[in-house]
Design a protein around this nucleic acid. Structure first.
Lengths: 222, 222
DNA sequence: AACATTTTGTGAATTTTATCACAAAATATT
DNA sequence: AATATTTTGTGATAAAATTCACAAAATGTT
């Protein structure tokens, strides 16, 4: 069963590959990708096996071909348009972040209850009042929305997004959103990440090690 | 072996408990916490069992006592001071975010190569030039740092933080940081989160379900 | 062209994580 | 005070994820 962890790893392989490509690599081996992403080489091969990706025995994988295959799996063939709800601190940071574009993700609009004093200055992403969200999403066939509003507004926004027909939500509010549809919810909980660090920092030296895929020191995560 | 996932769940239980407390609850049952955090009740009990937390058969758990216990485990007894490196978009958002304080996390300073045009306006967190970081960390015994600089600067900042004696790092740069010390690194990779959504949104209806702890729709995560 | 070396691909084994299921305890009910 | 009900706590079990390990294939070497 393919789940989030597989996709995160594929995404990591893809990014490592892009770097290898920049460096002029023509082929890579599973242990190059393993080193670059912090997993074992058998993990890399197993993942590829699951997605039907194959290389050459002794010859490794052709960078170009492998990238194509990963791009295909990850839906990188077309630009993914995303909207952001909440043009506060986090919303603004996301709106102005240019790094997504090279990964095929484009913030096309933002929505906020208070558009007046929240217009981001640097980039030409329009900020609309919340009332226009539903219409915009339907008209433009937006599939992914980011929730960057305060806790107490988050569920309301979630309901609005679901009602508008959105398919996936990235939630920055530190609460558990509910939806009875099959809308996909990913959470980014910075508070939790920091609390986590606090715990392990305090535990350092008390031999409370941590070593699963997410916890292992020096391992990727996302 | 206690790892990140345990701590994330404990952190979630703690937050649910705080809400229950606000609502006037005196006691809770494992399935209240399960509902609130999106896990099973046996998971809640198993987690508690691992941390030696016990309740009363039939009586559930005393909210107040349980909170104390969780606060203790999660190191919530004292304020955790954190520094932020990089006063760009994300750095600024974190600096100005007030939500952490109620969870005992305080941003005490920020550092940036370019302090001039990057001073955050709203809150009185000082922004120092990068050269002052090492000294500041040592002098103030800072344990946790947040990396919010561009990719290409991230490893350099990481090295600097490690050299300064920092114990835990929350990394927003979408690369795998390396350190030969046992500094703990947690990554927040928004690009990866969005790519993940793209995959599952595209897969919707193609019966590519996802159902592990992180992937299950409507489940908490971080 | 034979032999050595490297690397994939994948079943099997192992480890980790989560769920089940039920005895024991606490509370409620009659 | 006896009986019924509820909920914990945890071994046993199941499921999931990862690693192992090795045959097979591709490439390199003598």
């Amino acid at each position: 069963m393919v789940n989030k962890n597989y996709i995160i790893r594929l995404s990591n392989y893809r990014h490592a590959l892009n770097r290898f490509k920049t460096l002029g690599f023509i082929k890579v081996f599973s242990d190059n990708l393993a080193d670059a992403t912090g997993v074992t080489s058998s993990q890399v091969r197993k993942d590829f096996s699951i997605f039907g990706i194959s290389g050459n025995k002794k010859g490794g994988y052709q960078v170009e071909l492998l990238l194509e295959r990963l791009n295909d799996i990850l839906g990188k063939d077309r630009l993914q348009r995303v909207i952001i709800v909440g043009a506060g601190k986090i919303g603004k940071a996301l709106i102005n972040y240019k790094g997504f574009e090279k990964d095929g993700i484009k913030v096309v609009a933002a929505f906020d209850v208070n558009t007046a004093d929240r217009v981001p200055v640097e980039i030409d992403v329009p900020v609309y009042p919340l009332e226009k969200l539903k219409n915009y999403v339907k008209k433009n066939n937006i599939e992914i929305g980011v929730i960057a509003v305060p806790d107490n507004a988050a569920q309301g926004v979630m309901d609005l997004l679901v009602e508008s027909g959105i398919k996936g939500v990235l939630n920055f509010a530190p609460i558990r959103l509910r939806s009875d549809t099959d809308t996909i919810i990913n959470n980014v909980d910075l508070r939790s990440e920091l609390e986590n660090l606090v715990y392990f920092v305090n535990a350092t030296g008390k031999s409370k090690a941590r070593n699963n895929d997410k916890g292992k020191k020096n391992r990727e995560e996302q």
